[in-house]
Amino acid sequence: MLIELKNVCYTYGAGTVYEVSALDGIDLQIHEGEFIGVIGQTGSGKSTLIQLFNGLMKPTTGQVFFAGKDIWADGYDLRSLRTHVGLVFQYPENQLFESDVLKDVMFGPKNQGLTPGECEERAKEALRQSGIAEEFYSVSPFELSGGQKRRAAIAGVLAMDPEVLILDEPTAGLDPAGRDELLNLIKHLRDKRGITVILVSHSMEDVAQYATRLLVVHEGKIAFDSSPKQVFSHYRELEKMGLAAPQITYIMHDLRERGLRVDVTATTVSEAKRSILMALSEHRSLSTD
């Protein structure tokens, strides 16, 4: 087990009149190699939750474990934890600051205390994986396009070679092509490097397609925690939480209601296509008989 949360609560402004409870009694276990999607309404506590994973926020009560060790125990090295658990915030391009792209990506490895040679190697590797061409290495990060900036910023976290990669809405504000490219990159990284991915998203389609496990955060609690298929079968409850199932799930339910025997648990377009074609051929053979 990689990360474990035990009865974690987080309260903003504890002890003042402005007290707001963001998380309430979270128990959670994250295993190696998982691709976890996190969904929830704005203000449900998602962002707080992911900041607990790498020790940026300290739970008001409860414990956080990484690789079996309590990260808030005395003498625990939080800085090294942050190199194991990489966190990419929303709009990560806002963190770029160096005079050229390569130097910016080297910032993380440098903080890890690697030699300049190792830093450069790591940075180049991360940039290559993020799909930034070599001609941009010496360009100011502020001259890149929006999508490139985003990828450079993600490379800045990847260069630290984390075991867990947490991304908070990495596709917000990207065009459809940029979005698909980025998500495929993340999937590729997980398959190739074997890292654990935690993806916060507002797109049900995205999490349905990529995640192996889905967490639904609602009012500071984890409302659902299972495979995307199972979670989306509760689409009526999800709607009450201000969420929804992927569009395709609704289509499948509609088709079923109209008499076509399709698989209503399909959550991605390719699954749905297969199921609809199968149902249609079944339907045709029945009607010819």
Binding site: N54, L56, R82
Partner: peptide, 12 residues
């Protein structure tokens, strides 16, 4: 926000 993002990249 920026401070947190840089701390997440190992800044001290």
């Amino acid at each position: 926000k920026i401070k947190k993002a840089q701390i997440a990249r190992g800044a001290d």
